[in-house]
Design a protein around this nucleic acid. Structure first.
Length: 843
RNA sequence: GCCGGAGUGGUGGAAUUGGUAGACACAAGGGACUUAAAAUCCCUCGCUCCCAAAGGGCGUGCCGGUUCGAGUCCGGCCUCCGGCACCA
């Protein structure tokens, strides 16, 4: 092979991309007897073109995949398309292009972009979520969940634009207004499908502690999202009726301080207790509005079961129906929201907790004030824990103990019970949209809701529909789709027109990759254990943006458990290790079209090639941190690759004629000092690069180490045969170590020096610790902790010898003078610290 | 408000368990080559005192502490970023 004088990535990169494809080098087989590594990057939404965030994400993944492969793992490294979603539908409305066409054209273009990046994907395993072959299994899982009671139907609220007559996603509601027509968005009640993720709340929470390969931050976010809390439910009898209101609280230590009770406007009792329905409607309309705290007195009272006090019942817009019991006791002295509310409506404020120290900054609280606590003025609620007062038999206890005792008392007296609550809600998956997986049920006048039988799956999403952007989902107009017969009674029936949330698609795609294109089949797999899935799962390394820290990752953990319970999979956690890469920033802000600070990957690849683009993305910051884009930095990366190219080109003849296989450890005595240094540096670099990749994938420092090695090589002039061997050894190892980062140029140079086989099949270099050892070390001399000198000493001196040398150092002698030496500390291989007194030694 | 994370040269970032702060780059300045430029190569590059060198002082957001020794550990602040946000 002939090496061009000048490095031209436009020639080099397509050549090797074709070579790898022709050789089928990235095809992966399931081989049960081989150690495996499943490397996965979050698949993209085919929005049109890839952006720099993708480049970074996939460059990181590709380095890991190629590195693991060189280490002898059987690596699964797949890619696919998260292809259902709203932008396709928006494009249809705006540009009259069918979502299917739009999506597949985008996929085709983006696929070519990924190929240009030289990513080592096994495309035989590609998944496209909008293909019937794929979404059939969304439907099948849904049916299975329906059978198991995990999928269910209930009424819920959606964002609704009255003008467009359509449902809006949260991100389409901008400042309470419709994104397209600026109408005020209202809440509309609809029957929708839910998945009972809350069944798994406890398991998902507990297993968080086993996610040791995840960033702590993400684990914490998941825990907070699940939001477990311990408390009690207590019944408050409504005066003059047989009804009672059940409230939930975590602060039962403040129970004696409850001076009123609040119901959610959506609470079933609200309609019963409020006679003025118009007022109730007003409050209901403001339900969930964060800025206003509104209340409505019901005219009814209830009895605080602990102290028999009669307290008013209010309806309050800020009480959530979805959490706890939809009713709360209000303790204005110890909850700021209740405090504000009480001030607003002139309600009693009764202190039942005092701070233990009773010191400012808390407002002065007079112990034993008159009953009701009106005798002093509070400026704000005291929300911390403390000592109970005005709490009957519990007065004098501290909050934690009081909570235990009061909870026990409540259970004993039959007033309520201890409960655990979670913030996690069931997952609503119904979307009133076209471009998604049809939910496979039919509605029959006689039989009600009937699931589509497995044999009739998939329910195909019809193509001939109209996109107007008005009047809800285009499926509502698709008569031939809607009209069907009931699978149970054969009578006329209507299909469900809602489609599934696209998070369903991405909750199991990593399992689909294990089976491969055309082979996804869980029917024959259920109950048995398909070898491919059990071999590959879990994903060993998952890489993606932190924006998916909660939803996608939590849904995937949930789905994996459902699949486990269906005996399709034999692990509970889908992702063993997770790397959340930082954003790509330019001029201090996230790249976005509106800011005009985007860098176009196509332009970058055309100008510098993908190797340079990859190298810079990996060099400029460690993967988990944000990456500040720098055009100049890209130039620097390009320059570095050029330097390596030039080194190889300039030494081509000598390298070709040097047999590096004859090079070994024997006969090193006659090597020149420069040769010895380069050899040592090479081994040290092997060690450092390996170490940095292993330690949290710190590619930036690994690349820095390679730059140092290249600096060493370029300053080295071989003078004899041994030198030439070392030179070639150093260059070959540079190429091997650099290969996962910049596969094209290294493959080119690898072949140019006479290697016949692909560099991708080579083993990862091993460091020879003997050869990596420094012969001399630099001894740092500190006096009283301050750097005062440096000394080269041979490796392996004893502490005493080191002390002698340091104390004999002229500079040390000068500074120490006649002062007393109090202590001498030797830190092996690093430094010596001589501690001396302030004054001249008296002796 | 609550929960996280981060503050290091002109810039991006290094510094493995407390042990030489600023690796490696970028930018800048100077030089070589060239008719010239680009490219390439070489040198300088935290601040400061000193004509300069030698040498000294200061320096990892701020204040204090522990230690022979602190970017790293502890306490208290400040600033920025991210997540959650009426969850009772």
């Amino acid at each position: 092979m002939i090496l061009e004088e000048r490095y031209d990535p436009r020639k080099v990169e397509p050549k090797w991309q074709k070579y790898w494809a022709d050789m089928n080098l990235h095809k992966t087989e399931t081989q049960m007897d081989q150690k495996k590594f499943y490397c996965l990057e979050m698949f993209p939404y085919p929005s049109g073109k890839i952006h720099m965030g993708h480049v970074r994400n996939y460059a990181i993944g590709d380095v890991i995949a190629r590195y693991k492969k060189m280490q002898g793992y059987n690596v699964l490294h797949p890619m696919g398309w998260d292809a259902f979603g709203m932008p396709a539908e928006n494009a249809a409305i705006k540009h009259s292009v069918h979502p299917l066409k739009w999506t597949y054209e985008n996929i085709s273009y983006m696929r070519s972009q990924l190929d240009k990046l030289g990513l080592s994907y096994d495309w035989d395993r590609e998944v496209t979520t909008c293909s019937p072959e794929y979404y059939k299994w969304n439907q099948w899982f849904f049916i299975k969940m329906l059978e198991k009671g995990i999928a269910y139907r209930k009424s819920s609220y959606v964002n609704w634009c009255p003008s467009c007559e359509t449902v809006l996603a949260n991100e389409q509601v901008i400042d309470t207004k419709c994104w397209r027509c600026d109408s005020i968005v209202i809440q509309k009640e609809l029957d929708q499908w839910f998945l009972r993720i809350t069944n798994y709340a406890e398991e998902l929470l507990r297993a968080c502690d086993e996610l040791t390969g995840w960033p702590e931050k993400v684990v914490l976010m998941q825990k907070n999202w699940i939001g477990k809390s311990y408390g009690v439910e207590v019944d408050f009898r409504i005066e003059g009726t047989d009804d009672s209101i059940r409230i939930f609280t975590t602060r039962q230590d403040t129970l004696f301080g409850a001076t009123f009770l609040c119901l959610s406007p959506n609470h079933p009792l609200s309609r019963k207790l409020v006679s003025d329905k118009k007022e109730l409607e007003k409050i209901t309309a403001k339900y969930g509005k964060v800025d206003e705290k509104l209340g409505l007195f019901t005219g009814h009272y209830c009895i605080n079961p602990t102290n028999s006090e009669r307290i008013p019942i209010y309806i309050a817009n800020f009480v959530l129906m979805e959490y706890g019991t939809g009713a709360i006791m209000s303790v204005p002295a110890h909850d700021q929201r209740d405090f504000d509310f009480a001030k607003n409506y002139g309600l009693h404020i009764k202190v039942v907790i005092e701070p233990e120290d009773k010191l400012p900054p808390h407002p002065p609280l007079t112990r034993g004030g008159q009953a009701g606590g009106e005798s002093y003025e509070l400026k704000e609620a005291y929300e911390d824990e403390g000592v109970l007062v005005n709490s009957g038999q519990f007065s004098g206890l501290e909050s934690p103990e009081a909570r235990e005792k009061i909870a026990h008392y409540i259970e004993e007296k039959g007033l309520g019970k201890k409960v655990v609550n979670y913030k996690l809600r069931d997952w609503g998956i119904s979307r009133q949209r076209y471009w998604g997986t049809p939910i496979p049920v039919v509605y029959c006048a006689k039989c009600g809701i009937v699931p589509v039988p497995e044999k009739d799956l998939p329910v195909i999403l019809p193509e001939d529909v109209k996109f107007t952007g008005k009047g809800g989902s285009p499926l509502l107009e698709a008569e031939s789709f809607i009209r069907t017969s009931c699978p149970s009674c054969n009578g006329d029936a209507r299909r469900e027109t809602d489609t599934m949330d696209t998070f369903v698609d991405s909750s199991w795609y990593f399992v689909a990759y294990c089976l491969g294109k055309g082979n996804i089949d869980f029917i024959s797999a259920a109950g048995s254990r398909p070898s491919a899935v059990s071999y590959w799962m879990p994903v060993d390394q998952y890489i993606g943006g932190v924006e998916h820290a909660v939803l996608h990752l939590l849904y995937s953990r949930f789905f994996t458990r459902v699949l486990r319970d269906l005996r399709i999979i034999n692990c509970s956690e889908p992702f063993k290790n997770l790397l959340t890469q930082g954003m790509v920033i330019k001029d201090g802000a996230k790249m976005s079209k509106s800011k005009g600070n985007v860098v176009d990957p196509d332009y970058l690849i055309e100008k510098y090639g993908s190797d340079t683009s990859r190298l810079f993305s990996l060099f400029a910051a460690p993967p988990e941190k944000d990456l500040e884009w720098s055009d100049k930095g890209v130039e620097g990366a390009y320059r570095f690759l050029n330097r390596i190219w030039n080194i190889v080109f300039q030494n081509l003849d000598s390298m070709k004629s040097t047999d590096v296989t004859a090079f070994n450890k024997t006969g090193l005595d006659d090597i020149s000092e420069a040769g010895r240094n380069l050899l040592r540096k090479t081994h040290q670099t092997i060690r450092k690069v390996t170490h940095d990749i292993e330690r949290e994938y710190h590619f930036n420092t690994a690349i820095a180490a390679l730059m140092e090695l290249v600096n060493g090589i370029s300053g080295f002039e071989p003078r004899n045969e041994k030198d030439r061997q070392i030179f070639r050894f150093a260059v070959e190892n540079t190429l091997l170590l650099l290969f996962p980062f910049t596969p094209h140029i290294t493959e080119e140079l690898w072949h140019s020096i006479g290697n016949m086989k692909s560099i991708s099949g080579q083993e990862w270099p091993a460091c020879d610790e003997d050869l990596a050892k420094d012969e001399e070390i630099e001894l740092v001399i500190q006096i009283n902790g301050k750097l005062r000198g440096k000394l080269m000493i041979p490796r392996g001196l004893s502490d005493d010898e080191i002390k002698q040398r340091a104390l004999n150092d002229p500079k040390a002698i000068e500074i120490i003078g006649k002062k007393e030496i109090k202590k001498v500390l030797v830190v092996k291989g690093r430094l010596i610290n001589i501690v001396i007194g302030e004054h001249v030694c008296p002796k």
